[in-house]
């Protein structure tokens, strides 16, 4: 059970959060311009990395804010948290 450091509330138990999958997948500004394949890429394709992964989490039973998490999925260590709209930390690739 993770301890997640919500950027707005501080460290809380994982049970207060819900995971929202891979981060930094931006909704296309002009979906109508996209081919079926391009739209499907946005809609369905996710990386599911073993290793350092950028994820979205929501403090759903707390401040209800969405934020980003850098997590090493091989050992579940959370390496960094940052707010929506902020750039991902450069030291993780």
């Amino acid at each position: 059970m993770f301890l997640i450091n919500c950027p707005f509330c501080g460290e809380r138990d994982q049970s207060e959060f819900s995971s929202g999958g891979e981060a930094h997948i931006v909704r296309p500004k002009q979906p109508t311009e996209l081919s079926d394949d391009e739209w499907a890429e946005y809609l369905f394709m996710r990386k599911n990395i073993k290793g350092i992964q950028f994820e979205r989490w929501n403090h759903v039973h707390g401040c209800r804010k969405w934020f980003n998490v850098v997590r090493d999925t091989s050992n579940d260590k959370i390496l960094s948290v940052y707010k929506m709209g902020e750039k991902p930390p450069v030291n993780y690739k």
Partner: peptide, 13 residues
């Protein structure tokens, strides 16, 4: 509500 909040906070801030 969660879905709407998600779009507001992440796609259309």
């Amino acid at each position: 509500l969660s879905k709407l909040e998600d779009y507001l906070q992440t796609e259309w801030p």
